[in-house]
């Protein structure tokens, strides 16, 4: 139906919404999981960014969370269909345990992304579109400008706190 570049862009938007929503819902911008994540957040704040956005950037760097779950689930669906995606969720959980993380965000992201990608392959998308889309999505968060992306994440974090309660 659609051309491949258009499908990749739509897949990028869907992956972005999926992993940012799950990361913010599981309180990744609240604090650093390990001391390395806290160090990255302090450096980002020193460079002009926001501290809570920096915590989320540091947590993404230092443990596989929902973004890694989305990418590996798309790879699993691309290589082996629906069971491959669920197997990738298991691998993400093991990787989370290796990196001193509870692993809720990564596993939940992998499972939701598996069903998202598998459902979209029934509609006419290919799983490879979602792999490239996830790389574009992670580049917009981590790769373009840490100042702007950390401020954007801090705004989403405030919005989540106003919506669901919890301390600001």
């Amino acid at each position: 139906m659609l051309d491949e570049p258009a499908r990749i862009l739509i897949a990028a938007v869907l992956c972005w919404i999926n992993f940012v929503a799950i990361d913010v819902f599981f309180k990744l911008p609240e604090s650093g999981g390990v001391c390395g994540a806290t160090a990255i957040a302090e450096e980002v704040e020193k460079g002009g960014g926001n501290l809570h956005g920096g915590f989320m950037l540091g947590n993404i760097v230092s443990s596989p969370d929902a973004s890694a779950g989305t990418l590996l689930a798309a790879c699993g669906v691309y290589c082996a269909g629906l069971p491959g995606g669920l197997f990738a969720a298991l691998l993400v959980y093991i990787g989370n345990r290796i990196c001193y993380d509870p692993g809720y965000a990564g596993t939940t992201g992998a499972i939701t992304a598996t069903f998202l990608v598998y459902g979209m392959t029934q509609v006419g998308f290919a799983a490879s579109d979602f792999i490239a889309g996830m790389v574009i999505a992670i580049m917009t968060i981590q790769g373009i400008s840490y100042v702007h992306s950390s401020r954007l994440i801090a705004r989403l974090w405030d919005f989540r706190n106003r919506l669901l309660g919890g301390h600001p």
Partner: peptide, 9 residues
């Protein structure tokens, strides 16, 4: 990821 974690920590 483990490598980045170790470098940062």
């Amino acid at each position: 990821t483990l490598e980045s974690n170790a470098i940062a920590s």
